[in-house]
Every structure is written in C-alpha cells, then in structure tokens.
C-alpha cells in the first residue's frame, strides 16, 4: 500500500507537466499526470497546471470529461492547486477566447496592458495578502517565475491572496478554503517555489489523515 499522498496532475494537453510532477515528487508525494476522471476523483490532492490558449484548453477539458471532476475536487474540500492557466480557467470568461471557463470564481481573464513586453516573462515579486497554509513561510520580497500574457481579475477581492506589479497591479494568487491558485510557476521558481509544493503536499497529508474530504 502506497503511503505517500496521491496527487493527480490534471492532464488536458496544455503544456509540459514534467516539472510539476518532479517538484511534487521532490516534496515527497506520489504524483501522476492523468486525464482519467476517476483518478482525479480518487486522488488525495489535485494540481491543475497549464500553459497555452484558453479556448483549446477548455475544449480539451470538456472533451475529456474533466470539467465535472475538477469542480467536484474543489467542492470536496481536498487540497487543490491551480498553476498559471490553472488559475485563469477558474474564472468565468477570458479576453483570450470565446469558450466559457470553469466559472468557479466570478470575474474575467484580461490581457495585460500594452506598453511593455508581452508575455510577462521572468522573475517578479508577489505581495502576499492572505494567510493560507499553502502560501506560508515564504520570505517577504521573494521572486517567482512568470510567463503569461493574461491575468485573472476576480470580482470577489477577498480571495486575492497576492498581487504583482507589471505595468499594473494584477492578481497573481488566489486562495480560499482548500483552493490555492497562482499565476506564476512555483515549479520553476527555485527553492522558494518548492516551499509552495512542500506546503501543498503537507496539507494533502493532513487532510488525508483527518479524513476532511469525502
């Protein structure tokens, strides 16, 4: 019997999942990339990563029958971590396309303002505003690695866990209950990024032990 926490990385053909998997494994989890709805339902924790375009990603999610399992995971109370596009798709709609997004959060995904290089690519700071178990222990002023052209603009400001400055102050992290989602790539942000995966794996272990979900 596998004792490590089982984490499903949602695979919907949106970019490279290897580095997310390696980061989770380094933090002591058993991580599998999967597009099997049942594997996502059974997992102790879910990571929802993604790079690429909103429309094709939402179409893949629907074709693969993953919209239900993703929403159920969020509602079940098990730890859920969205990364990059995995944050944006939690909103209702996007400037980038016409497909409806998951609509977990009210609000829209908007294009970063013109007047600077797009994509926003490289290391930038996050001003963390919320205490959340997945975001704790990060030294103030830490830098994270970003690559994106759009940002999430949730209506409910109480979920905004962090903001970043790039021509404007945009929402770079959200968190509530069992859900954390970040615009940057913790798996590409060196040691400070791994803190987030360590926190996440720890939370998965705790909620599994406590039988919080299901």
């Amino acid at each position: 019997m596998e004792n490590r926490p089982q984490i499903a990385i949602v695979d919907y053909q949106a970019g490279n999942l290897r580095s997310v998997q390696k980061a989770l494994e380094k933090c002591g989890a058993a991580a599998i990339a999967t597009s099997d709805p049942e594997a996502i339902r059974q997992a102790d924790g879910v990571v929802f990563p993604g790079q690429g375009a909103c429309d094709s990603s939402m179409r893949h999610i629907r074709e693969l029958g993953l919209e239900g399992p993703i929403k159920e995971s969020i509602l079940s109370g098990k730890p859920f971590l969205g990364v990059c596009l995995g944050l944006q798709l939690l909103l209702e709609e996007s400037d980038e396309g016409d497909e409806a997004c998951l609509g977990i959060l009210k609000g829209r995904v908007r294009r970063l303002p013109a007047g600077q290089k797009i994509p926003h690519m490289g290391w930038n700071q996050v001003d963390f505003k919320l205490d959340h178990p997945v975001l704790k222990g990060i030294p103030a002023g830490s830098y994270f690695y970003f690559v994106h052209s759009y940002y999430a603009d949730p209506e409910d400001e109480s979920v905004i866990a962090g903001t970043t400055d790039y021509g404007m102050n945009f929402c770079s992290a959200v968190a509530w209950d069992n859900v954390t989602a970040v615009q940057f790539h913790p798996e590409k942000s060196g040691d400070v990024g791994l803190i987030i995966y360590e926190n996440f794996v720890k939370l998965v272990e705790q909620t599994k032990a406590a039988g919080v979900w299901r």
Binding site: H120, Q125, Y143, F146, Y166
Partner: peptide, 8 residues
C-alpha cells in the same frame, strides 16, 4: 517589478 534575467 520584473527583473532582468542573467543566464549562463
């Protein structure tokens, strides 16, 4: 602020 990247 976005930083300039140094790449070996």
């Amino acid at each position: 602020m976005l930083t300039k990247r140094i790449i070996p």
